[in-house]
Structure formats: structure tokens, C-alpha cells
Design a protein around this nucleic acid. Structure first.
Length: 255
DNA sequence: ATGGCTACGATCCGTAGA
């Protein structure tokens, strides 16, 4: 089983990239973020033609999340219980025995800003939400754009980024709280090459210089970690014309 | 020291992303 997450930065613009990539990579479950479209405009027919069912929670202009699966998408839930939020950032569904949670964590804009406070509150709610999900679903995967680079290894220039949003200590502490629940970063379950990132700034030739951050992650419960056979980031779609600024991350499991 | 792209929606620039 192959599970992937991709912040597409507008599903409307990226749909051709997505369908090409689905045909090539053949993932079983895909979590998407930043759809930037309302549900009425979700390209359900195009994705069905590509062989995927979809559960989605969108809104105009910003945010929006979806889960795609080849078969058997069930028990869809939207948002985090107990955390009222206008912003569509969370959707969950069950697929062939796995509970998949798709998250688009807040950006945070700048340390100390109102949006940064919202980000930290949002992560506190995520911890509570995932603790309950873990209790209910032993085979849990949480995939999405976390907007946190967990370690200096995940940052192209740690000196330049020190203390900035995405790498600040409170954000990294919020990440460690998720790991302390019993979740595992699938990327770090295996030896990985150095300087692997999932996001590169559109500006200043960020991708060409590999000036990136690893902020898109797949966390899994211990039961799923035991089944994990591979993980990585697929840079290929970032090389295309008019790409998303994020590349897909993936994890593979033995059945 | 600043802004550098891209997407979006309402204009012909502002907001947001990261």
C-alpha cells in the first residue's frame, strides 16, 4: 500500500499534474492540501476517471483538504471535534483498515503574530484530536503539510532560518508532542540522503538552488510503522512547468 | 535592507502563502 501527501496549491491549476502523477505513481491513498476551491468546484468526475474516489472539504480561495482512494473510502469526518474553525484544514477517512487523517496545518506567518498564536493553538487541538483518533484506530496515518521543519536537517540554511516561523522552538515542541503520542515520522524510519526537502520558494530560484524545507510529513502509529517498508519525497512534479511549490511525500507499507 | 513568485479575487493592487 502506498500513501502520499501533496500540497497542490490550487487543485484547479494543478489538476493535470495530479492526474498525470496518479497514473504514474499509482498511490492507494492520497492526502491533498490547499485545494483553494469550494466543494461545488471539486473535480470529482476527473478524479473518478483517473480511478479515485474522493472525500473533500473545501472553501473559496484558501485552505481546503481532500483524501483520494482507489476503493473503499468510508467514515469521513471533517474538522477537529471540539475546535471550531472556519478554515478547512482537516479531513479523515478509513481506507482498507487504515485511518487516514489529512491535515493542512497553519502557516503562522511570523513568530509573535496573531497567525502564529493561532498556529500554536491549532497544534494543541491537533494533539488532543489525534490522541482520541489513536485510541480508536490503532492503524493511524496523519499526512499533510505541517508547516514545521522538525530538525535542522530539514532546513537548507539553518542559520538563516534560526528562530523563524516553521523552525521556531515552540513549533518544534508542538511537533515533538505529536511524536510523544506514539506517532512516527515515516521519513526518518529509513536512511535518507541529505538535503531532502518538500517545499521550495517560488522566488530566487529556490528549487534550482535546492533552498528548501521539509515540512510535508507522514506520521504513523506504531502498528503502521511496523509495516512501513519505504518512504521519501518525489521531486519530479516540482520540475514541471507551473508547479506547486510543494512536492509529494510518500510512504509504502507491506499490505 | 528589501524583495524576489504564484494564486486568487476583485481590480489593474492587496492578501496570503512559507
Amino acid at each position: 500500500m502506498k500513501l502520499a501527501t501533496w500540497n497542490v496549491n490550487s487543485l484547479k491549476v494543478r489538476l493535470p499534474h495530479l492526474t498525470d502523477w496518479l497514473a504514474k505513481v499509482q498511490p492507494d491513498i492520497v492526502c491533498l492540501q490547499e485545494l483553494k476551491l469550494e466543494d461545488a468546484k471539486f473535480p470529482r468526475a476527473e478524479l473518478e476517471a483517473a480511478g479515485y474516489q474522493a472525500a473533500f472539504s473545501g472553501q473559496k480561495t484558501y485552505n481546503g483538504v481532500a483524501i483520494l482512494a482507489r476503493t473503499g473510502l468510508s467514515d469521513v469526518s471533517v474538522g477537529m471535534a471540539g475546535f471550531a474553525d472556519e478554515q478547512k484544514r482537516v479531513i479523515a477517512a478509513s481506507v482498507s483498515g487504515v485511518r487516514a487523517v489529512c491535515v493542512y496545518c497553519p502557516n503562522g506567518q511570523a513568530v509573535g503574530s496573531e497567525k502564529y498564536d493561532y498556529k500554536l493553538r491549532w497544534f494543541a487541538a491537533l494533539k488532543e484530536y489525534l490522541a482520541a483518533e489513536l485510541a480508536r484506530y490503532p492503524q493511524l496515518a496523519v499526512a499533510g503539510d505541517f508547516n514545521v521543519a522538525p530538525d535542522d536537517r530539514d532546513v537548507h540554511d539553518p542559520k538563516a532560518w534560526e528562530g523563524q516561523v516553521h523552525v521556531s522552538e515552540p513549533e518544534r515542541a508542538a511537533w515533538r508532542v505529536l511524536l510523544a503520542l506514539g506517532l512516527n515520522d515515516t521519513f526518518r524510519l529509513f536512511e535518507q540522503p541529505e538535503k531532502i526537502y518538500s517545499w521550495w520558494d517560488y522566488r530566487m530560484m529556490g528549487f534550482r538552488r535546492n533552498a528548501g524545507l521539509r515540512i510535508d510529513h507522514i506520521l504513523v502509529s506504531q502498528e503502521l510503522a511496523n509495516r512501513c517498508t519505504a518512504s521519501g519525497i518525489d521531486k519530479e512534479p516540482r520540475k514541471l512547468e507551473r508547479p506547486s511549490d510543494h512536492a509529494p511525500a510518500f510512504a509504502e507499507f507491506d499490505r
